[in-house]
Design a protein around this nucleic acid. Structure first.
Lengths: 204, 204
DNA sequence: ACATTTAGCTTACACTTGTACGCTGAAATT
DNA sequence: AATTTCAGCGTACAAGTGTAAGCTAAATGT
């Protein structure tokens, strides 16, 4: 039998439909500013004007998407770090985890990447906040694991995240067989940063 | 007296007006895909349909802008390298030069950054080519100056460019007084990469 | 001198967009 | 059982879009 839904349940379901529709619309050739409310509504299976029952406008929806995407990414990396053992390579596991996520959730990662340099100052700073959050979590991990100052850990973490995100951008447009090469390349680059900081540490 | 212009001169002048108009339109909240042909024409001081006498469509103009922006950037860095002496710090000079360029040509740099992750595959790969070109020139410089293998130089160069471009993105949205801090930060990060590669070199 | 070419213009048309307004029916509340 | 709430719909409109068609006048070619 079909479950009888309360009004609130139905509303949340529709809201989620809109969010999913939006993510599926935001492919290689659509950004939050180029997408139309009507297009999202069409895919979500609702009338254009019904959109307003759930979001103030596309900007409002966009902020929700950015939040959700950032959250997913941070949760992912936290779980990756839990999988790191004493003798396993933290960089390898982290990069592999992220690259796998990207290839399986292209549009989620794309939203962050695209809106990071997009045409809306609001989105840009929202993504920037998510990235800072992301950097901070990595920095804390690095600081306690490599026993370095917070300042150094912050610098290292940020450099690493920038390198990884750039590689992610490349991976989005690359053929599947190229992805492995990109992953290997970025691992070396992260190692250089790590080595460099370690080398720098003694002499302040 | 006013110089009499030949037809061809006049045409080139108008073409340049369109290009300049486009760059001035492509500010913090306009991308090549969100800008309209009519808007560019308005700023360039021509009728919308006259645009077609010079470019096939906005895409065509966009490719021209990307080419031009990439060229400016490479010429800039080449001239910066010429200014580097034996005892001056290559990183400092390069970063300062680029950051100055960015703050004086925000929209030019913005086009590259934005279209790099934009909604047009054609633009993305055009920018990617420009960046690769940029990376290659730096890589050659690094290889001969640091006496390392091409492979290592490529990896180092790419990592550095990614870090610098990310900092550039931050600088675009930052207050002028923050720019100095960003520049200092990125210099450290580039130094880490350089140190790391140097450290890595002995053991292949 | 006349003929050709063409940069730039005006007009026109078919589309897409965001969203205001008011209706409806079913769920929730009383 | 009567009333209120509200998610979703259909209609409608003004604004902006790309671009097709055809004209004009001046620079060029002959």
């Amino acid at each position: 039998m079909t479950i009888k839904k309360t009004r609130e349940q139905q509303k949340q379901e529709t809201r989620q439909n809109i969010i999913n529709a939006a993510f599926s619309c935001l492919d290689a050739e659509k950004s939050l500013s180029s997408i139309s409310l009507r297009e999202i509504a069409r895919v979500a299976g609702i009338a254009p004007t019904s959109f307003y029952r759930h979001f103030k406008d596309v900007n409002d929806l966009g902020m929700t998407l950015v939040d959700e995407a950032g959250l997913m990414l941070r949760q992912l990396m936290r779980s990756a770090r839990r999988r790191i053992t004493a003798d396993s390579n933290a960089i390898d596991i982290s990069v592999d985890t992220l690259m796998e996520f990207i290839s399986e959730n292209k549009n989620v990662f794309r939203v962050l990447l695209r809106e990071h340099t997009g045409t809306s100052a609001e989105f840009r700073s929202a993504v920037q906040r998510e990235i800072q959050h992301f950097i901070k979590e990595l920095s804390d991990y690095i600081m306690h694991r490599q026993q370095i100052s917070q300042q150094l850990a912050d610098l290292q973490s940020e450099a690493m995240v920038m390198i990884v995100f750039s590689a992610g951008a490349q991976a989005l447009d690359a053929q599947p067989n190229q992805q492995f090469i990109i992953a290997e390349k970025v691992k070396y680059q992260l190692m250089f940063v790590q080595l460099g900081v370690k080398q720098f540490k003694p002499k302040p």
